[in-house]
Deep mutational scan, measured.
Amino acid sequence: DLRKKIVDLHKSGSSLGAISKRLKVPRSSVQTIVRKYK
């Protein structure tokens, strides 16, 4: 699940930009998912 991957990467200390590059999703999507998770 993409959300879980993003949250896991964020927990392990990756920046939003790094996560978005790695998973090839827009940075804004990463930000939204991380914000919802918090």
Rank of each mutant, 00 (worst) to 15 (best):
D1F: 12
D1S: 14
D1E: 11
D1Y: 14
D1A: 12
D1V: 13
D1P: 10
L2W: 10
L2T: 06
L2P: 02
L2Q: 05
L2M: 09
L2G: 03
L2D: 02
L2F: 07
L2N: 04
L2K: 07
R3A: 13
R3F: 14
R3H: 12
R3Y: 15
R3K: 11
R3E: 12
R3N: 08
R3V: 15
R3C: 14
R3L: 12
K4T: 10
K4C: 11
K4P: 02
K4G: 07
K4D: 10
K4F: 08
K4E: 09
K4R: 10
K4L: 07
K4S: 10
K4H: 10
K5P: 04
K5R: 13
K5E: 07
K5W: 14
K5V: 11
K5Y: 10
K5G: 04
K5M: 14
K5H: 06
I6M: 04
I6Q: 00
I6A: 04
I6Y: 03
I6T: 02
I6P: 01
I6K: 00
V7G: 03
V7Y: 10
V7A: 07
V7S: 03
V7F: 10
V7H: 06
V7M: 12
V7L: 15
V7Q: 06
V7T: 06
V7N: 04
D8R: 10
D8M: 14
D8K: 10
D8W: 14
D8Q: 13
D8E: 14
D8G: 09
D8H: 11
D8L: 13
D8A: 14
D8S: 12
L9S: 03
L9C: 10
L9V: 01
L9P: 01
L9T: 01
L9I: 01
H10L: 13
H10S: 04
H10N: 01
H10I: 12
H10V: 09
H10Q: 03
H10E: 03
H10W: 15
H10F: 15
H10D: 04
H10T: 04
H10A: 06
K11M: 12
K11L: 13
K11T: 08
K11D: 07
K11G: 04
K11C: 06
K11Y: 06
S12G: 09
S12W: 07
S12E: 09
S12V: 06
S12H: 07
S12T: 10
S12L: 13
S12K: 11
S12N: 12
S12Y: 07
G13L: 00
G13M: 03
G13I: 02
G13P: 01
S14A: 15
S14W: 15
S14V: 15
S14L: 15
S14N: 13
S14D: 07
S14M: 15
S14I: 15
S15Y: 02
S15A: 05
S15L: 00
S15D: 05
S15R: 03
S15G: 08
S15W: 03
S15P: 04
L16W: 05
L16I: 15
L16V: 14
L16A: 07
L16Y: 13
L16M: 08
L16Q: 06
L16T: 09
L16G: 03
G17K: 13
G17F: 06
G17T: 15
G17H: 13
G17Q: 11
G17N: 15
G17D: 10
G17V: 08
G17P: 05
G17A: 14
G17L: 10
G17E: 08
G17W: 11
A18G: 06
A18Y: 12
A18V: 08
A18I: 06
A18R: 05
A18D: 11
A18L: 08
I19L: 02
I19P: 00
I19A: 01
I19Q: 01
I19R: 01
I19W: 00
I19Y: 00
I19V: 03
I19G: 00
I19T: 01
I19H: 01
I19F: 01
S20P: 02
S20V: 07
S20N: 03
S20H: 04
S20L: 01
S20C: 06
S20Q: 03
S20T: 05
S20R: 02
S20W: 00
K21L: 08
K21E: 09
K21H: 08
K21W: 06
K21S: 06
K21Q: 07
K21R: 13
R22N: 09
R22K: 14
R22A: 15
R22W: 10
R22E: 09
R22H: 13
R22I: 15
R22Q: 15
R22P: 02
R22D: 08
L23Y: 07
L23H: 02
L23D: 02
L23V: 05
L23S: 02
L23E: 03
L23F: 07
L23N: 00
L23I: 05
K24Q: 11
K24V: 05
K24M: 08
K24R: 11
K24G: 11
K24L: 07
K24Y: 04
K24F: 06
K24E: 07
K24H: 12
V25S: 03
V25I: 14
V25W: 04
V25P: 00
V25Q: 03
V25T: 04
V25F: 01
V25L: 11
V25N: 01
V25E: 03
V25R: 02
V25M: 08
P26F: 04
P26D: 06
P26A: 11
P26C: 15
P26V: 04
P26N: 07
P26W: 06
P26E: 04
P26G: 06
P26S: 10
P26K: 10
R27E: 05
R27H: 07
R27A: 06
R27G: 03
R27P: 06
R27I: 14
R27W: 10
R27N: 04
R27S: 05
R27V: 12
S28G: 09
S28A: 11
S28Q: 12
S28P: 06
S28F: 08
S28K: 14
S28D: 07
S29L: 15
S29R: 14
S29N: 08
S29Q: 12
S29T: 15
S29A: 14
S29E: 13
S29Y: 15
S29H: 12
S29M: 14
S29D: 11
V30M: 00
V30W: 00
V30R: 04
V30T: 00
V30A: 04
V30D: 02
V30G: 03
V30Q: 01
Q31A: 14
Q31R: 13
Q31K: 12
Q31P: 02
Q31Y: 10
T32V: 12
T32A: 15
T32F: 11
T32L: 14
T32Q: 14
T32N: 13
T32P: 03
T32K: 15
T32E: 13
I33L: 06
I33T: 05
I33Q: 03
I33A: 06
V34L: 13
V34Y: 00
V34P: 00
V34H: 03
V34E: 01
V34A: 02
V34G: 02
V34K: 02
V34D: 02
V34T: 03
V34F: 02
V34N: 02
R35A: 11
R35T: 09
R35P: 02
R35I: 06
R35M: 09
R35N: 10
R35H: 10
R35V: 06
R35E: 11
R35D: 10
K36E: 14
K36T: 09
K36V: 08
K36D: 11
K36H: 11
K36G: 09
K36R: 14
K36S: 09
Y37W: 11
Y37R: 04
Y37Q: 05
Y37L: 08
Y37D: 05
Y37S: 06
Y37N: 05
Y37V: 06
Y37H: 08
Y37M: 07
Y37T: 05
Y37K: 04
K38T: 10
K38G: 11
K38N: 11
K38R: 09
K38D: 08
K38L: 13
K38Q: 12
K38F: 12
K38M: 14
